[in-house]
């Protein structure tokens, strides 16, 4: 890989991000079957093709920009946020939307206002809600184990072996289950005894969250990201969850549940930390992260969707110019100045 050099360019940062995602992918694959590998491949291929095409259309040099890996990071983040058992065109369309519209039509890497992966995800969630909820059953609870070839045949052809129904392979996510059961009036402690829940979050998915945390720690150690956004994101989410859990433990899930489920860890370390679409000043990063964390909690608890990382990130992306303008660090020797 010729593009790894000693000077930390976009390429080496993106490579580290991809590397940091690997443990989570391994755990994901272990608990939810090989479908994730298929969607990672699909997303990567689509992203590279779309990136090449758009770079050519924009008449900028293809190779240096293609090799910086930013398209691959977008593709992987999308594959990891979308249900892997969905039909092939879902991830392909999401990636196309992310790369072509959210990234290049907004001016390419560095100019895009919104996190491309989250735009792709949100567009698909709004347009195809049914397909976007085809989450595979965690391996420890599954009665049927789909082989790799059956997985391929399902993703590309939509056919399942024998008389198998799709319902037997998919399940509601922990956040989804919590939401529907709460609406039925069951208390949180009661719901948490259901088999899909693990020690603190969802079975299997809590370990993926742990792997994201490990990947995030690696990125922090490598100084690819700073602590501000993840800490503020997770801090705000945990603080809100703690406050409401202490207020009424029967209706509001515990803070560790919120940290370990859904897209919290992936969002905090890999999505909200996007250097292009996130805030850039240290104080701004804290405001940005806390805003995302707060909105994630609000959407999860009172909103219309079970998880809200994508929407929270997109909404805060819109506020970034304002946040950055108001949090300019004071130049040494100058007095306090209003922006």
């Amino acid at each position: 890989m010729a593009f790894v050099s000693n000077t930390p360019g976009v390429g080496s940062i993106m490579l580290k991000v991809l590397f940091a995602l690997m443990p989570a992918i391994a755990v994901y694959q272990l608990y939810f079957g090989p479908a994730i590998l298929v969607s990672l491949m699909l997303a990567s291929l689509t992203a590279m093709l779309a990136e090449t095409l758009m770079l050519r259309l924009r008449r900028v040099p293809v190779m240096p920009f293609l090799m910086d890996g930013s398209a691959l990071v977008t593709a992987w983040l999308l594959a990891l946020s979308m249900p892997p058992l969905a039909p092939w065109w879902l991830i392909v369309m999401a990636t196309l939307f992310a790369i072509v519209i959210a990234k290049h039509l907004y001016g390419g890497l560095g100019n895009n206002l919104f996190n491309p992966a989250m735009v792709g995800y949100a567009v698909m969630l709004i347009s195809f809600p049914a397909q976007m909820t085809q989450w595979p059953v965690v391996d420890t609870l599954a009665h049927i184990h789909l082989s790799f070839f059956d997985t391929l045949r399902f993703i590309f052809g939509g056919t399942l072996p024998g008389s198998l129904k799709l319902d037997a392979l998919t399940m509601a996510t922990p956040l989804d289950t919590l939401r529907t059961q709460l609406l039925l009036g069951r208390p949180v402690a009661d719901i948490a005894t259901m088999p899909i829940f693990g020690y603190v979050g969802g079975q299997g998915s809590e370990l993926i969250a742990l792997a994201y945390l490990a990947g995030g720690a690696y990125l922090l150690q490598q100084r690819s990201i700073t602590w501000h956004i993840p800490a503020a994101f997770l801090g705000a989410l945990a603080l809100l969850a703690f406050g409401l859990h202490a207020f009424d433990a029967a209706r509001y899930a515990a803070p560790w549940f919120h940290l370990a489920t859904g897209g919290a860890m992936l969002g905090a370390f890999f999505i909200a930390t996007d250097p292009v679409t996130g805030a850039t000043t240290p104080k701004g990063k804290i405001i940005f992260g806390a805003g995302v964390g707060t909105l994630v909690y609000v959407i999860r608890t009172w909103g219309g969707y079970p998880d809200g990382v994508a929407f929270a990130v997109l909404i805060l992306n819109m506020c970034v110019p304002l946040i950055d303008a108001y949090t300019q660090p004071r130049v040494f020797g100058h007095g306090k100045e209003k922006p």
């Binding site: 369309m93 519209i101 567009v123 709004i126 347009s127 195809f128």
Partner: peptide, 14 residues
Amino acid sequence: KGFLLAVLPPGAFF
């Protein structure tokens, strides 16, 4: 299947 976003307001802007 229908790409719902196109009929929703964002589709008009895009």
